[in-house]
């Protein structure tokens, strides 16, 4: 059948990607799963340790807290940028595009160090504020949770802008006109019509950002300065610094399962196409 052969040929086009995913992610991950049950000895010992170890638990809780705060901060900022990008004047649109695209051209590492240069005790912000006489002691902006949150928020904003802007673009202009024609003020239209019509984009953006944030490594490592360890960094520390491969592997498995569950939830709420814009 023609239809069938076209489908199988289309699958052929996907084959390199599937092969790559299989070799680079699935197979190694199966190895990690095996470690989590076999190192140092066979059994569920590492998972039991994971449930009871106060350090591991505090890292999980900190990770969740940071990710929730970052997600909220990203959504608010990205909403504002998307709004200007979709509904602003042509100059404002260009400016918004610039804000969205430039971060993509600069590596994570450079950006993390850039923030360090801004936020550290002898960084730009503290120096300015001190020389202006506004503060006498430097503010603790980096090498703590706040620094991590600022750096991660900045990194993740563009990923949230696309789904939100896509939702804003699909709003029928006449619906907003209709509300105006009925006498509604601009504020009222924004909160009771515009924002509710972008909930889909907000949920999608929130899930993407949250899932992405859970696995962050470079930014927290640099801006947290070891004092605000998140899950990914903990895995790294367990495997490379205190050769405790089994626990590191078990943490990875739990993280992957958690993200898998979140993605399954996301699929129930929105179509994947909505996320790309």
């Amino acid at each position: 059948m023609i239809g069938k052969s076209i489908t199988s040929r289309k699958i052929l086009l996907l084959a390199p990607l599937l092969l790559f995913l299989g070799l680079a992610y699935v197979v190694p991950f199966l190895g990690v799963v095996r470690w989590s049950f076999t190192m140092p000895e066979v059994g569920l010992g590492q998972y039991r340790a994971l449930m009871t170890d106060p350090l591991v638990q505090s890292v999980f809780i900190r990770t969740l807290r940071i990710c929730l705060i970052v997600t909220a901060a990203v959504l608010v900022t990205a909403y504002a940028i998307a709004y200007v990008w979709v509904r602003g004047s042509s100059v404002q649109r260009m400016l918004a595009e610039f804000c969205i695209l430039v971060p993509f051209w600069i590596s994570v590492l450079t950006r993390a160090f850039g923030w360090l240069a801004m936020l550290s005790n002898r960084g730009l912000i503290n120096t300015w504020l001190q020389s202006a006489g506004i503060i006498s002691e430097p503010l603790a902006l980096a090498r703590n949770e706040l620094g991590v949150i600022i750096g991660m928020t900045h990194f993740l904003i563009p990923f949230a802008v696309f789904p939100i802007a896509s939702a804003m673009r699909s709003i029928d202009e006449r619906v907003l006109l209709a509300a105006r024609g009925m006498g509604a003020s601009r504020t009222r239209i924004f909160w009771t019509v515009f924002v509710p019509l972008t909930y889909g984009g907000l949920i999608g953006a929130g899930l993407i950002v949250f899932v992405f944030a859970l696995g962050f490594f470079v930014t927290p490592a640099i801006l947290g300065g070891g004092r605000s360890v998140m899950v990914a960094e903990l895995v790294y520390l367990r495997i490379f610094q205190s050769p405790d491969w089994g626990l590191g592997a078990a943490i990875s498995v739990v993280l992957v399962l958690f993200i898998g569950a979140l993605l399954a939830l996301m699929r129930r709420f929105i179509k994947p196409a909505h996320l790309i814009g």
């Binding site: 006449r174 006109l177 105006r180 009925m182 006498g183 509604a184």
Partner: peptide, 19 residues
Amino acid sequence: PAEDRSYGMVFQGYALFPH
């Protein structure tokens, strides 16, 4: 402005609030 004239309006394509 339109919000102060407050005429009733039926748009082409209805323009109902979908939510």
